[in-house]
Amino acid sequence: MKFSPAAISAGTLVLAAVLTGCTPVADVDAAPDAANPDCAAVMVAVPDDLAGSKQRETSSQGTAAWGSPSEIIMRCGVPVPGPTTDACATVNGVDWVLREDGSFWTATTYGRDPAVEVLFDTDKVASSTVLVELQNAVSRVDQTRECLSTKDVELPG
Results as ranks from 00 to 15, higher is better:
Val141His: 06
Val28Lys: 00
Ile73Leu: 06
Gln143His: 05
Val91Glu: 06
Ser9Gly: 09
Ala10Cys: 02
Phe120Gly: 05
Thr106Met: 11
Ser68Ile: 11
Ala17Val: 02
Pro24Lys: 04
Glu57Met: 14
Pro24Trp: 02
Asp49Cys: 03
Thr84Ser: 10
Glu146Phe: 10
Ala87Leu: 10
Gly52Arg: 08
Thr106Pro: 00
Val14Asn: 09
Met1Asp: 15
Val141Pro: 08
Phe120Met: 09
Phe3Thr: 14
Thr63Ala: 15
Ile73Val: 12
Ala89Gly: 12
Val94Ser: 03
Leu131Thr: 05
Ala115Pro: 03
Arg75Lys: 12
Ala137Met: 07
Arg56Ile: 15
Glu117Asp: 04
Ser128Phe: 08
Asn36Cys: 04
Ala35Gln: 13
Val94Gln: 12
Gly157Asp: 14
Arg56Leu: 11
Asp113Ala: 14
Leu155Asp: 04
Arg75Glu: 15
Met43Tyr: 09
Met74Asp: 00
Asn92Ser: 07
Thr84Ile: 05
Glu133Asn: 04
Gly157Met: 14
Pro47Tyr: 06
Trp96Asp: 10
Val153Gly: 06
Glu71Pro: 07
Cys88Gly: 01
Thr109Gln: 01
Pro156Trp: 08
Leu148Phe: 09
Asp86Glu: 10
Ala30Gln: 08
Val44Leu: 07
Val78Gln: 00
Leu148Gly: 00
Arg56Gln: 12
Arg112Cys: 03
Val130Trp: 01
Ser59Asn: 01
Arg56Ala: 14
Met1Tyr: 13
Ala115Lys: 00
Val132Asp: 15
Glu71Ile: 08
Val94Asn: 05
Pro69Val: 06
Ser59His: 04
Trp66Thr: 03
Asp48Thr: 10
Asp33Gln: 11
Ala10Lys: 12
Val28Ala: 01
Leu19Glu: 11
Met74Cys: 04
Val138His: 05
Trp105Gly: 02
Ala65Gly: 04
Gln55Trp: 12
Pro156Leu: 15
Val141Gly: 06
Glu100Leu: 10
Leu131Pro: 00
Val78Ala: 03
Ala107Phe: 08
Phe120Ser: 00
Gln61Ala: 13
Lys151Met: 11
Asn136Cys: 03
Asn36Leu: 04
Ser70Glu: 08
Phe104Ser: 07
Ser9Gln: 15
Gln55Arg: 15
Val132Ile: 09
Ser103Val: 09
Asp29Ile: 13
Cys88Glu: 04
Ser128Cys: 05
Pro83Arg: 11
Ile72Leu: 05
Glu71Trp: 12
Met1Asn: 07
Ala16Thr: 06
Lys124Leu: 07
Pro5Leu: 06
Asp33Ile: 05
Ala89Asp: 12
Asn36Ala: 13
Ala87Trp: 02
Cys147Asp: 00
Val97Gln: 04
